[in-house]
Design a protein around this nucleic acid. Structure first.
Lengths: 205, 205
DNA sequence: GTCTATATATTGATAGAC
DNA sequence: GTCTATCAATATATAGAC
């Protein structure tokens, strides 16, 4: 009987190596900035030589793109369905914000990099990432508007309120440290957003 | 009689040239990112050659430091006295937020650069800039706490609320365009912060 | 203070053996 | 897929004339 380990499809091993590279690169990019980090440094962290990275990514920029895509496409596909679930607009928005903050806390470095290093992307890649962000922002705006129409929320300009809330949430990635209590953070920011900026009445305060 | 122009003190001319360089560099850094911009590009924009820049700044990093200092030390010296003026804690905080947003709108590119390109600073320069930001943040926290003690504001954790508000304000520099109505922006964000995140009762809504 | 010319270092990426 | 060796480009910064 053959060894199962060595018989495993190389596609899985390759994908695992890719994720390893992305994780190491995100850490370095977050700490030092994209341009300061060399391919050799990333390669060292995963135990290979710099040239070997090009078996997994066509360029350094493609590593950055993988990080940015992970933090924009994944939330769109995994969080936005929460806005179509059962419940009032305010309840659905609260679910989304919870997921947003948890995801941010679980992927802090990737989130920081995808906010800060966008100018290093090619115009095409930047456009794709920007599209995902815009769509996410529009969906948040729409559920805020629905909550306002239902009389649950009180905002004059849903579009501007959506931006303010998302900026406030995304700001977390600049200062969050590993020793923070994520659940307390989630509760606090849901309240900041919904009871605060979006003016829900009759909330916990 | 001598020509007044050529008799002008060189210190003034030098300072003007420095400001010219800082302004051009900030524009390029904001658009393309610090590391993508070359000294020759900055020099071109002010009509000199790359090597001549070193008569005004010791290094490229010192230009970045001048930008970061302008956006952290100046607000500390010019805005924080508003917190010691007459009025309730909430009124004083509102004045500070107004000044903060106006300054941000008037110096959008410098503000964006001083948020995004911090990792490119030397450790010493980064420490100075960080100290200014921390002090600013502490003063905001203190006036929020005073407003809460006075029963004007309703927050559980003044420190966390201060960070959330400042993150929300600073987020403006990522998307603000020149055609925005600054006064409307100021009014909106003062309300987002004070009536919203900080829970003032009996406000305009 | 500005110029021309250049030093020096580093980096992203490629070629080809194994 | 990983390695060694290397290319080619680019950038910051310096030297010295004017």
């Amino acid at each position: 009987m053959e060894d199962r380990e060595s018989a495993a499809p190389p596609r899985i091993a390759g994908a695992a190596r890719r994720e390893e590279i992305v994780a190491a690169a995100a850490r370095f990019f977050a700490e030092q900035g994209y341009h300061t980090v060399g391919m050799r440094e990333i390669a060292d962290a995963v135990g290979i030589k710099g040239a070997s990275l090009y078996n997994h990514f066509g360029s350094k920029e493609e590593i950055l793109y993988a990080i940015a895509l992970k933090m924009t496409r994944d939330p769109q596909e995994q969080h936005l369905p929460l806005l179509d679930a059962e419940g009032t607009p305010t309840e659905r928005l609260a679910s989304l914000i919870e997921a947003h903050v948890r995801n941010l806390a679980d992927n802090r470095v990737e989130h920081l990099v995808s906010l800060r290093e966008l100018p290093a992307l090619t115009p095409e890649h930047l456009a794709r990432v920007t599209d995902y962000r815009k769509y996410y922002q529009r969906r948040v705006r729409d559920v805020i508007a629905a909550g306002a129409r239902a009389g649950e929320l009180h905002v004059e300009d849903p579009s501007r309120a959506a931006i303010a809330v998302l900026d406030m949430l995304n700001g977390i990635s600049w200062w969050l440290r590993d020793d923070h209590d994520v659940e307390a953070l989630v509760t606090t920011y849901v309240s900041f957003a919904i009871d605060g900026v979006l003016g829900r009445r009759g909330g916990p305060r």
